[in-house]
Amino acid sequence: MFMYTEAKKILRLFTRYFKLNLSSQMEYRASFLVQVFGMAINNATFIFFWWLAFGVAGEYIAGYTFKDIMFLWAVTSSAFGLAHILFYNVHRISNLIITGELDTFLLQPVPVLPNILGAGTSVSAWGDLVYGVVLLAIVWGLSAKVWIIFVLAVMLGAVIFTCVNILAHTLTFYIGNAEMIASTVFEFMISFSIYPDKIFSGIVRILIYSLLPAAFISHIPLRLVKDFNIGTLAIWLAFAIGFLVLSFVFFYRGLRKYESGNLIVTRM
């Protein structure tokens, strides 16, 4: 019962933040649209690169077709977009800890981590979200199976992207400013999820199935689209939930080490 009430509270908080963030973006409608379309065009240029690469390589690159690569791009782009629309503030965790601004979040009568995550958004992330949906529709058509897996992949991908960031930023509690570690880890995650997993070997391949779980963002969903297996689906779901729990536990353990400053902050 307690868990249910907490979950409801967090969901209500995210909904409030979402509405608030969206309405503040809509104040500058022209700027919003320019940034959304700018980001969509930005992503679309990579289709050109892959068209050239398949032009010289033939039908397959590391067992992936052009259509498969577009699926990786669609899922990664939309998951990245959703994560940054809802939880963009995750990138500020290190900064909040170092400057002492975390105090403000600790004083409010809502769970700390969800409160931090929802407190910011990225305008251009809408472009990433929309781009993935449009790309999938154009390249993969309207197959129900593909779309169900895509929607699930986008939601779980957004969770995994956010959790990786939480884990990396939480290191600030232990070792000091971990902003650079977090941004590097995040760039690695993005880069590994938009290329065929089979081009990587050895330690990198182990990493993308564990600590930097890029494979769980895009490669495993593609495997399910091509050859559905209930066992793979179960592993995928279990991994995402496990990662979520791990990141929350790690954050709250780290929070015990936090020392408050005397900074006075007003949140407007």
Binding site: S31, V34, Q35, G38, M39, I41, N42, T45
Partner: peptide, 12 residues
């Protein structure tokens, strides 16, 4: 008003 998309497009 906003030059950021031009930077995006240039870099691409």
């Amino acid at each position: 008003e906003e030059s950021r998309p031009f930077f995006f497009i240039y870099s691409k």
